[in-house]
Design a protein around this nucleic acid. Structure first.
Lengths: 239, 239
DNA sequence: CCTTTTATAGTCGCAGTGACTATTAAGGGG
DNA sequence: CCCCTTAATAGTCACTGCGACTATAAAAGG
């Protein structure tokens, strides 16, 4: 009803919390910071902080992302607003409303404890439990959201560098979903989806490893996948 | 970084805004209220209001929903958190962070202007333009979200009464998506999806109209649709 | 040279689906 | 009462997307 002029209103502290996700060594990792103060001193938590007076939540999230990762340029990175957590009592000291974001990084830098001396570290998703506040829930929501959006959007390319192989793209799906995918079928599906990826014309090659060199692709103009790349549980195959 | 103890923080006003959607006469309608005060006096806006000190955003949204619709019991209604709008300047008077929700109603009551004398009215979605604040955008986001979730969740039943015919369910899809669907195919698809709907055993009948009476169904236990009910394949190269 | 490894190409069969036709069960008008 | 209309329900058919699988190509290593 927006009767600002008639009703008194309670002021709230507004923060952003970030679930910064990346892939390291074939496993999903999340950036955590160690809390130096009460409450939850010594516990790990998602990076985050207060909104400044002239910032939107998105702006604040991107600022925190830059501070926490130490990356010079975070403008190209995918930021996804998850939802807002506003339960009374989620912070024992005061009433805090927090807007949660997921951020997807292709190449994880070694983090420095940003402005606030607290240590920052990449932690495998499965080991990231017992976080401060309601951050366990936020992190779980982030993974759910990202996993779901892989199905019907081009979000997977946000985990990849500018140029990538189809094998790397497939690893994104396999790692986030925790399932194995058939390589020829994945390839057929991705290439059949218009605008998902486009080949890098200057031919290919990559991966100093063994085997036949793979062709390079970059993200295409599409944002949504038609038809979607559906998750179908499949037993692990002998790799 | 949650350095509450080190940094000063700005207090914000936190509100909820509701896009209350329903189907009347085969068209999507939204509940709007007329503003009585500046800014935007005389303009239509989405219902909403401030969070009370001990309320979560969801609780506040449900309270506002009850006040604005005059419904005695809103506990069964579907509330969907959309996103949070926090751009500075979205309210010309003060810094307001607003958590937006979509609410889905099966049977639209005639609204009374809730607590705040302002008039409330059902407006066809297509006519709801030029709203106050950034409510045009919130309303568009609500429709996008609902339309998308119809594809892969059971959300459509939230627009239907406890018992409904497949024809009514199909009208939900057709109205929200703005496309016509083939009736036999829709029927086949819905019945083939386990847990989507279940027949009301006491046989059927409804709709005082002409034609063969339709069987009645109620919502099933499923929440997601496997496989999804995809919208008419729209090919695209956006941008 | 052969083996291993990884990328890429192609085949086969089934399930889901779009387009369409047919049948059933009501009401209304002559 | 008969017939027309209306709407729900049943069934057909061809195409396609996809899962499962096999085969070939191009590199590195021994």
């Amino acid at each position: 009803m927006h009767g600002y002029d008639k009703h008194a209103f309670e002021p709230f502290a507004v923060t952003v919390d970030l679930a910064v996700l990346t892939l390291r060594a074939g496993a999903l990792h999340v950036l955590l910071v160690e809390r130096g103060q009460e409450p939850y001193a010594g516990r790990w938590a998602l990076p985050g902080g207060f909104l400044l007076p002239e910032e939107s939540a998105e702006t604040a999230a991107r600022r925190e992302l830059a501070e926490e990762t130490g990356l010079a340029d975070v403008t190209g990175l995918h930021l996804e607003q998850l939802r807002t957590y506003s339960e009374p009592g989620r912070d024992p000291r005061m009433r805090v409303v927090s807007v949660a974001f997921a951020a997807l990084l292709p190449d994880p830098p070694e983090p420095h404890g940003g402005g606030d001396a607290a240590e920052a570290r990449w932690v495998p998703y499965d080991k990231a439990q017992g976080l401060a506040f309601d951050h366990d829930r936020i992190l779980a929501d982030a993974r759910d959201r990202v996993g779901a959006k892989l199905e019907y959007t081009c979000l997977a390319t946000a985990f990849c560098p500018a140029e990538f192989t189809l094998g790397e793209l497939q690893q994104v799906y396999e790692t986030v979903w925790g399932t194995a995918l058939d390589r020829p079928n994945f390839r057929r599906k991705v290439l059949a989806t218009p605008g998902f990826v486009e080949p890098v014309p200057g031919a290919a090659r990559l991966t100093g490893g063994r085997g036949k060199p793979a062709a390079l692709y970059r993200a295409g103009p599409a944002t949504t996948l038609h038809p979607p790349l559906l998750r179908t549980p499949r037993e692990g195959r002998p790799a």
